[in-house]
Design a protein around this nucleic acid. Structure first.
Lengths: 144, 144
DNA sequence: TCTTGTTGTAACCATTGACATTACAATAAG
DNA sequence: CTTATTGTAATGTCAATGGTTACAACAAGA
């Protein structure tokens, strides 16, 4: 099982916004054409990013922009915005282990802390990369 | 999107094997009753663990056992055995960014290294926990 | 040899989530 | 009022998960 491509699409969208907002109005159609998906997919994505306070979207007149400087938007922010990590987290625990079995009764408690540590390691790494970092890398690649 | 419960079920199964193999023959039915799933699910899982060299399964006579000491089986071993992480890894990149757009053309290269680093952080953490660790924790919980 | 318990596996089915697509009302600005 | 755009509902397709039944292959004891 993989983390949804919404994550990389969202990053792509943010890079597009930063890269082109000085020149064009960056609409869902514009982003969709760079990512190569249906514009509605981008609109739904922008709604999620908006709810998380990452972007602003201009209804009617059109166009999206970042809601704060991109060196203050981490990959973790984006990840949490687009993955529905409401609860449960990265790992999916089987629901109903047999409580009459000593292992079934205790496996959850024995494993939870470990899984959390693993997830935290991933999230820590995500929180150390900002959209600005990706933007700089992309600019470097474009001009080389 | 979450990592399949096959992962935690596999760990549960291994703990069951270690905990009970001295007393009972640990069959797929036995494990299934502790995990509370269909025995066929366990059998398929054991096949994956067997292919990865983690367990041995006795056809005919019945019963599963670990193929090597559990302090030499890490969570990463189990993860790789049950998740079909053949390729692509943890993240799912959108396939066809627009090559005519400078961002679409370079986003892949700009992002790949970062995503890899994140995945490696997760896998490193997984490789530092063994089934023996979980087993010890479980035993401690049972006797307390 | 026959019986019994078990594994290995194929064949389904239901459910879920991702992603695509169409359609259209709501909106903002010229 | 017109036009471009967003917000969102409705629908469809596809793949993966997880469940279940069924049964042949197999090993070992009676």
């Amino acid at each position: 099982m993989q983390i949804s491509s919404r994550f990389t699409v969202a990053i792509h969208a943010l890079i597009c916004i930063e890269m082109f907002k000085a020149d064009h109005k960056v609409t869902s159609d514009f982003i969709a054409s760079s990512v190569n998906v249906n514009p509605v997919v981008i609109r739904k994505l922008l709604q999620q990013l908006k709810k998380a306070g990452i972007v602003q979207v201009a209804r009617g007149s059109g166009g999206a922009d970042t809601a704060r400087p991109v060196d203050q938007i981490t990959l973790l922010d984006v990840y949490k915005a687009v993955e529905c990590v409401d609860e449960g987290g990265l790992f999916h625990f089987h629901e109903n282990p047999n409580q009459l079995c000593p292992v079934g009764k205790n496996i959850h408690a024995a494993l939870d802390g470990r899984l959390e540590t693993i997830q935290e390691a991933m999230e820590r790494e995500m929180s150390e990369v900002t959209i600005q970092d990706i933007l700089s890398d992309t600019e470097r690649l474009i001009t080389s």
